[in-house]
């Protein structure tokens, strides 16, 4: 049960990655710092899930993953629920709903955003830094490659681990120093392989014409459509709601 990108063509999938990122970011802030009643939060969550369902988001994995934070939810419910005048189930439910809200938004965001969309959002966040010479695009490519090779290298560590244990390595030693030495049979081969891999990748990229100095064009093109306009109202509303107490004075 892993939350990962599931391709789709629904309304939410078609949003501009910048809109997606901003809405998700705003919604997470909203769920963490509102002071609405449990019923209202529950309604908002239900509405959110309904929109997701209607636009064809694969919700099952996200909802099933809530089990993973089950323990956290119980602890939060207990801490928030007990107040000076005994246990108040309403407070506990509200606290739990807030966390579930944050979790669902983050889960859905990761389900509907491909790696390139995540990178696009990343890059947009870093773009202001490009003015002072920060290589935003190269940095984004590094992120993509890191994410791309993460599972590959994990699989490799697992293979090396099994083979070295079979040879007799004891990889979980005692104290800090001894555990560092115990990890040598795992660390050295993994690093060596990672360096070899990086060298091969660099060559393959160069053979496909990659140069840092070159003017590269961009294939991914994200349109800013009518739905984006509607969706963009969500963060605006949220910021209005959050800033309201300061403005009414």
């Amino acid at each position: 049960m892993q939350i990962s990108y599931k391709p789709g063509s629904g309304l939410l999938h078609r949003l501009n990655p910048l809109t997606k990122g901003t809405v998700a970011f705003a919604a997470i802030i909203f769920f963490s710092v509102n002071n609405l009643s449990g019923a209202v939060i529950a309604t908002i969550i239900a509405g959110f899930l309904l929109i997701c369902k209607l636009s064809g988001v694969a919700l099952l994995d996200v909802i099933m993953s809530i089990r993973r934070i089950g323990l956290l939810l119980v602890i939060v419910a207990l801490i928030q629920g007990f107040s000076v005048d005994g246990f108040n189930p309403m407070l506990a439910v509200e606290a739990v709903l807030r966390i579930v809200g944050v979790f669902l938004v983050a889960g859905v965001y990761l389900t509907i955003s491909s790696q390139s969309e995540l990178t696009c959002f990343w890059e947009a966040c870093f773009r202001p830094l490009a003015l002072i010479g920060f290589p935003a695009r190269e940095f984004a490519l590094i992120m993509v490659i890191a994410v791309r090779f993460f599972p590959v290298i994990l699989g490799e560590i697992e293979r090396i681990r099994m083979a070295q244990i079979a040879r007799g390595a004891r990889l979980n030693g005692g104290g800090l120093l001894s555990s560092a030495t115990a990890l040598m049979p795992l660390m050295i081969p993994t690093l060596t392989q990672a360096v070899i891999r990086a060298g091969e990748l660099a060559q393959a990229m160069e053979a496909r014409g990659y140069r840092v100095s070159a003017q590269r064009t961009r294939y991914q093109r994200f349109r800013f459509g009518f739905i984006d306009l509607i969706a963009a109202s969500v963060p605006l509303l949220i910021f209005y709601y959050l800033l309201r107490p300061f403005m009414s004075e």
């Binding site: 293979r159 083979a163 079979a166 040879r167 049979p185 050295i188 081969p189 060596t192």
Partner: peptide, 14 residues
């Protein structure tokens, strides 16, 4: 009681 040798076992040298 086993030895498990993967493809490219020379990757295990340390």
């Amino acid at each position: 009681n086993i030895s498990l040798v993967f493809q490219n076992p020379e990757a295990l040298f340390f």
